[in-house]
Design a protein around this nucleic acid. Structure first.
Lengths: 151, 151
DNA sequence: TTGCGTGCAAACGGTTTGCAGGAAC
DNA sequence: GTTCCTGCAAACCGTTTGCACGCAA
C-alpha cells in the first residue's frame, strides 16, 4: 500500500464531509508519527506540546472518527486502556512477557494457520489485526519452572 | 483433575494461612456454581441474594486472592470489565462476533499448534488459558462483505 | 449563515484504597 | 489478644456526555 501524505489525508477527510480543524490536523499528524501503539493520553500530551488548548475529549472523539474511517486501529491489550495505532503501518502482534514485561513482535503469517482453521471449522472470520499473547519469554520461562503461589 | 469439594477448598485456604469468613465461603461457593464467566458485579449480586451485607470491595479482594491461588482465572475480553472463571473447569476460549455479539467456545487443542510454534521459534511459553478472538461469525460474515465507513 | 466540532465540566463504570471497627484464630 | 478481613466512603482512572460557544465551510 502507498503511504498517504498528510495533505492527502486531510483532503480525504474533507471529501467525506468532515471539517478540517487544527485539532484534527495535529492529532492526525501525531498519531502518524508514532511508530508504536499509543494511548489517547500519550497523543494528548504530544498534541499539547504544540498546541496546549486541546482537550482530551477532542482527542477521543477524533480517534473514534479515525477508527471509523479505518485510518487507525484500536487495540485493547487488557491493561485498562485502549491503544491506538496508525493503520497503514500494517498488522503486527505482540508477545508480552508477564514477568519482565518485554514485548516482542510477531509476524502476521504465524497466525495464518489459526485463522484458516477457524474459518474452515466454524466459518468464523477472525479479525487478528492486533493480537496480544501473554506468557513468559525465553529468559523468564527458563528461570522459574514452577507455577502459582500466594502473591 | 479431581474436583475439590467446598470443604476441601475451605481447608486449603486455611492451611495456607487465610482466614475463613462467611464472605469468602459464599463467594467461593457462588463462583464454583457458575458455569460461565462472570463479572465481579454478577458474583456480588448472587452473594447478596443470600447474605446482603457483603461489600463489592470484598468481592474484588476475594477474587484477587483466589486468582493468586490459581483457583480462579481472570479474563479481560476488552469490554471494560474483567470476567472471572473457576479454574478447575478448564481452559477454553472464545470466538466473539463483533457484529451480533455471539460468543462461541473454542477447544484448547486448536491453539496448540500456535503454542508450539511460539515455543519453538521464540522460546516463548504462551499462556493461552483464556483467549478471546474477535471477528465475524459465519452468519454475520456472509452478510456483509464490505468494510468500514463513517458511523 | 449553518451546523459541525470544540472546550469545559461533570458524570460515568469498573476497580482500588485508607481507615477504623469487628471477627477469626 | 493479635492480626487479618471487612464495610464504608471516597478516590481513582480512562472514557463518555451534555451543553453552549465558536469556527470551518
Amino acid at each position: 500500500m502507498v503511504a498517504k501524505s498528510q495533505d492527502e489525508l486531510e483532503r480525504a477527510l474533507q471529501d467525506q464531509g468532515y471539517r478540517l480543524t487544527p485539532q484534527r490536523t495535529l492529532i492526525l499528524e501525531v498519531i502518524r508519527e508514532c511508530d508504536d501503539h499509543v494511548s489517547a493520553e500519550q497523543i494528548y500530551a504530544r498534541v499539547r506540546e504544540v498546541y496546549p488548548y486541546v482537550n482530551i475529549s477532542t482527542v477521543y472523539r477524533t480517534l473514534d472518527l479515525l477508527a471509523g474511517l479505518a485510518l487507525v486501529t484500536k487495540t485493547d491489550l487488557g491493561e485498562g486502556r485502549v491503544l491506538y495505532h496508525w493503520a497503514e503501518k500494517g498488522n503486527h502482534h505482540h508477545l508480552i512477557c508477564q514477568k519482565c514485561g518485554a514485548v516482542a513482535s510477531l509476524d502476521d503469517d504465524l497466525l495464518e494457520p489459526l485463522k484458516q482453521t477457524l474459518l474452515l471449522k466454524f466459518g468464523f472470520q477472525a479479525n487478528l489485526d492486533h493480537i496480544a499473547i501473554f506468557g513468559h519469554c525465553a529468559e523468564c520461562g527458563s528461570l522459574s519452572p514452577s507455577g502459582h503461589g500466594p502473591h
